[in-house]
C-alpha cells in the first residue's frame, strides 16, 4: 500500500513536484540555447539546473514516501530528465539540417 504524504510535508510535496517539471524544462531550454549560441556558460547553467532538479526529485521521493518500485521510478525519472533534452536537441538540430536560410546553429 502507498503511504500518503505526511501533513508536515504537504507543501514540499506539491512544490517539489512542480519544480521537477519546471526545472526539467529549464534544463532542456538552457541546454538548447547554450548550443545554439555556442555558449559554455548556458550549458554549465543547464547542468546546474539539472543538479537542482535532482535535489527536488529526491525531495519529492522523500516527501511522497517512495518505496520499492517507486524508487525505480525515481531513478528512471532522473536518467530520463538527463538524457531527454539531449535527444530533443539532436532532433531539433537534425531536422533543421537542410534548412535553406543561413542559421547560427552549431552542430
Amino acid at each position: 500500500m502507498i503511504d500518503p504524504v505526511e501533513m508536515q510535508n504537504f507543501f514540499m510535496a506539491f512544490f517539489s513536484g512542480a519544480m521537477v517539471i519546471m526545472l526539467g524544462a529549464l534544463y532542456a531550454l538552457l541546454l538548447a540555447w547554450g548550443r545554439i549560441k555556442s555558449s559554455p556558460a548556458f550549458v554549465v547553467a543547464a547542468y546546474i539546473t539539472y543538479v537542482l532538479l535532482t535535489v527536488f526529485v529526491l525531495v519529492l521521493a522523500d516527501t511522497m514516501n517512495f518505496e520499492g518500485f517507486w524508487n525505480l521510478i525515481t531513478a528512471v525519472m532522473l536518467v530520463g530528465y538527463l538524457l531527454a533534452p539531449h535527444g530533443i536537441w539532436i532532433l531539433s538540430r537534425d531536422t533543421h539540417t537542410h534548412e535553406q536560410e543561413p542559421s547560427s546553429i552549431q552542430s
Partner: peptide, 8 residues
C-alpha cells in the same frame, strides 16, 4: 504533475 501521484 504536482498533484497527480496517489500519495498526494
Amino acid at each position: 504533475f504536482m498533484h497527480t501521484l496517489p500519495q498526494i
